[in-house]
Design a protein around this nucleic acid. Sequence first.
DNA 1: ATGTATACGTACCGACCGGTAACATTGTCA
DNA 2: TGACAATGTTACCGGTCGGTACGTATACAT
Lengths: 205, 205
Amino acid sequence: MPSDKNIEPTISDGHASAPPKAAKKILDVAYDLFYRRGIRAIGVDEIVKRAGVTKPSLYRSFPSKDELAASYLRQYDLEYWERFDEAVAANPGDPRAQIKAFLTRIGKRTQVADYRGCGMTNAAVEYPDHSHPARVVSEANKQELRRRLRAMAAAMGALDPDTLGDGLLLLIEGAYISGQLFGLGGPAQSVARNADLLIEASLKK
Amino acid sequence: MPSDKNIEPTISDGHASAPPKAAKKILDVAYDLFYRRGIRAIGVDEIVKRAGVTKPSLYRSFPSKDELAASYLRQYDLEYWERFDEAVAANPGDPRAQIKAFLTRIGKRTQVADYRGCGMTNAAVEYPDHSHPARVVSEANKQELRRRLRAMAAAMGALDPDTLGDGLLLLIEGAYISGQLFGLGGPAQSVARNADLLIEASLKK
DNA sequence: ATGTATACGTACCGACCGGTAACATTGTCA
DNA sequence: TGACAATGTTACCGGTCGGTACGTATACAT
């Protein structure tokens, strides 16, 4: 599989004005459009038009639209764990506070009129086929999220860490979805409070 | 808006062999395909082919594909509240048991390899535009679900009924989504247990 | 200056999208 | 038998889909 054609193999861009790299512009535009309006809803023509490039440029950097969608999600994955790790780093050694910080942030992000939820979740809904490149990335992201939540539930001292970890995952996914369903004033604003109640009820006495 | 062309306005079908009604076959096939594979993923050609009818027949009964999708969701809505009311009727006067029965059922339904979640939720993810006919139906269904859950939380005697109702909604949506993300053995199997823990932690002492 | 490699643009492909026009066929009831 | 409504048949529309063949421009090394 010679798919070495991806992003930024160039040197180090030492001095001024390196060529803006068509592939990067394409991925940036695709990221925005795929996330906001859905992958199936966006055609490659619109992507190249908004990126100011042409279609062959897209297909020189990405083997197919499906693979471009997978690249979008790989980028999303990176930024997702950045946000997660920020909440963790802000509360060292206190998994319960880490969760609370992460969920408070999610709860806030959902409180805008056009919130679009989680790009990973949305992609999985759009592509039920488990072998689709985008879905493969999405499922891996969710498996990792589950793993981390269960580990943190164990670190909190939960009676049944796997159940608590999964409960937190359900609340998080519920926040992503109901955030885009209800918009402002929706149920997602209470995700941190509900999570804390669930944690309290799940700890060893 | 003369959209009186829908389903079954015919008399009572007293005796044998009423014409099988193309509109019903179309809606049945569309229901199955839209739900299992997504609305955007299915073209009208495939629907009419699988239904054994022709395209003009579809457009005589439904003004557009978008409206057919909305009709699919209206049918989904009917069956959704049937299932909900079953769980309610099975536990008269006991809202906590009603919730538990409903969530136990959801948890079980998610435990198959190709579970596809909630048709309402999926449609909202596919159509971010709030004015889309399918999304209008979806949002109405979720508003009603929220209303009922909050009312039941109040009937349980929760300290903060709106927060508990919303927490249950988050768990339910999380179960729908993680059911299709993880399949067998996923977090959705614990939705009833987590809901019961959350309820326990939310009641007046 | 010239070769070479890489990045880009023009123009095009067949297939499918949702949707329609015009007409033939059928079954049902009066 | 005749009239009506529902369905089927065939052919078609413009637009968009994802994807590509092929020629051109630019940059750099020699």
